[in-house]
Design a protein around this nucleic acid. Structure first.
Lengths: 154, 154
DNA sequence: GAATTCTCTGGGCAGGTTGCCCACCGGTGT
DNA sequence: ACACCGGTGGGCAACCTGCCCAGAGAATTC
């Protein structure tokens, strides 16, 4: 899928996103055209989706994160998805196997505000039950580099 | 916290990360220096953490995602965190309130491979019990723009 | 009201980078 | 032996960046 050079390139870009193609080629010890070609390939293959800004919800005034497990009334899935997609505080939504039917990540301005968010989330006909887990700490923030390293060494 | 211009700038960067400061200033109808100053401020305030590459685990050969709720033996938290941080397939880890003690996001090469990952995750002394939910669909991928819009309009 | 401070504007400048082109070379597979 | 592919090293014009400056408005402070 990806080789060592791809892996090193991704790691380099993750550490110092500001560097350009030329600087990256110097760091990696390859020609500029090579880096350019690798980058193009990685993007067209979908390995690298893009370089969008990583925004911190806490810095935006939403320091509270929670995960909600939702139980959905049969056949209401599509409506619930649409409803949740319309709530800005819903940062992501998954349908899952297991006890609940959906799992979503929420943010709120405070613990008190979280109540408002949850009310808005579950205040919809298709949702039967919700159980919420508030995040206290985040020992491992969303990361991908260790996986990239592993994948590039195969 | 952030005003309309900040919001529009973040949206613009999210849609077209390749554009530079100059092009952004043209799109937003302000001077280049203004965009530069706003960007510097947003980054130093921590609103924008960076512009790292967004890597798709599926394109790396890990198309299966799951969430595991872990129950931890009292006083073993630190050891468990360290253990999980060493597993590349653990993409993020949170400590939470509620029934479990921790929630982590996992990826695997296949459903069969997920068993290996889970075994590795729970094969550690401090972990009492684990319950896993496999992700089937992802109707709302991790997003931030709706929240940025809301925050910038206050 | 007046002074100060902050932000935005519009401009200029040298230097670096990008996107694009080319010829060449060493492996690989046919 | 041949063609193909990926990498190399070079060159080119156009563009962008980082940095500087002076001036205008608006908001805040005294």
């Amino acid at each position: 899928m990806i080789d060592r050079l791809d892996g090193r390139l991704i790691e380099l870009l993750a550490e110092e996103p500001r560097i350009g193609v030329l600087e990256a080629s110097r760091r990696l010890g390859v020609a500029r055209g090579t880096v350019q070609a690798r980058l193009d390939r990685l993007q067209s293959q979908g390995v690298i989706r893009g370089f969008g800004p990583e925004v911190d919800p806490a810095a935006l005034g939403y320091p509270v994160t929670a995960f909600a497990t939702l139980e959905i009334k049969q056949g209401q899935g599509a409506d619930v998805r649409e409803h949740l997609a319309g709530v800005p505080e819903v940062l992501e939504l998954h349908t899952t196997t297991g006890h609940g039917d959906m799992l979503c990540r929420l943010v709120a301005r405070s613990n008190a505000d979280l109540q408002r968010v949850i009310d808005r989330v579950v205040g919809f006909d298709g949702i039967v039950r919700a159980s919420t887990a508030i995040v206290m700490e985040n020992p491992v923030p969303l990361r991908i580099i260790p996986l990239v390293k592993q994948a590039s060494e195969d």
